[in-house]
Design a protein around this nucleic acid. Sequence first.
DNA 1: TATTGTTATACTCTATAACTATA
DNA 2: TATAGTTATAGAGTATAACAATA
Lengths: 152, 152
Amino acid sequence: MFDLGRFLPYLLNRAGARIATAFGGDVARYGVTLQMWRVLAALWHSGAQRLGDLAELTSIEVSTLSRLVGGMEAKGLVTRVRSDQDARVVTIDLTDDGRETTRRIIPLALHYEAVALDGLTGAEAEQLKELLRRVYANMAKLDEAERLSVGG
Amino acid sequence: MFDLGRFLPYLLNRAGARIATAFGGDVARYGVTLQMWRVLAALWHSGAQRLGDLAELTSIEVSTLSRLVGGMEAKGLVTRVRSDQDARVVTIDLTDDGRETTRRIIPLALHYEAVALDGLTGAEAEQLKELLRRVYANMAKLDEAERLSVGG
DNA sequence: TATTGTTATACTCTATAACTATA
DNA sequence: TATAGTTATAGAGTATAACAATA
């Protein structure tokens, strides 16, 4: 009637928690936390971002991210620049140091991914990722629907 | 060279964060937090558990769980009983109230799972869950290997 | 008035370690 | 000595709301 071992949110949380703990412990050796790595990876992949978009990309709350980025700025990993066109907007970008730190962490990240996917065929790995993207899209749709119903 | 959109830990965290935020906001209406729900669901599914096993089942740190269970005991959701055979061991179990609360939340949980899996075929959903189980097993194996190498 | 980001607050979670009591 | 659980502490994250600056 309710089988935890077949319950998607449980399986998702359980696998995610394991990877986060293992990888998070390891990136500490590079002087960054797991959340900082997420910011670095998002900026590396998508280029300079405004704070709101970076929050969306990293799944980190805006207020948390604002302080996190402040700390990363103090560490010299990122820059924070006010836009000329719209002075409300702040654009975050990697510094050379931030880029170098990210470059060094990437192999470690790929190693953990390889461990997580050990024993899966390439097709299975791709299938897993595709299904996770669809799950995410479903939840994002729900969020948007809620925002509209609250707003209207 | 590093595509975040195809990086498993990222996709896992992103999907998990969305579900956790959405579902966590909703279970609050039943007077419990998301972590409390995880404890309730684990006890419902697996029966009475000692604290250490419950921590493993829920992916919640032992020290966090100890205080969490204390709060749930105060709310009348669970009992904490010292073992007769081994007085170090504490067994946590649902109270009738805890069981009733869990029973009422389960349909909500299944609803969120259905939303997350919307548009996926039954076979795809099963495949996703199976692959998540394998990813978890891979990470658990890694953890165990590390524990042995540190211990020995 | 709405938007973007910052700051403040209170609460929760984690990680670590010290501690108690058992075994 | 090792194990099971509790408690203490400091550091991070979250949620909420108040706030400043700008549009």
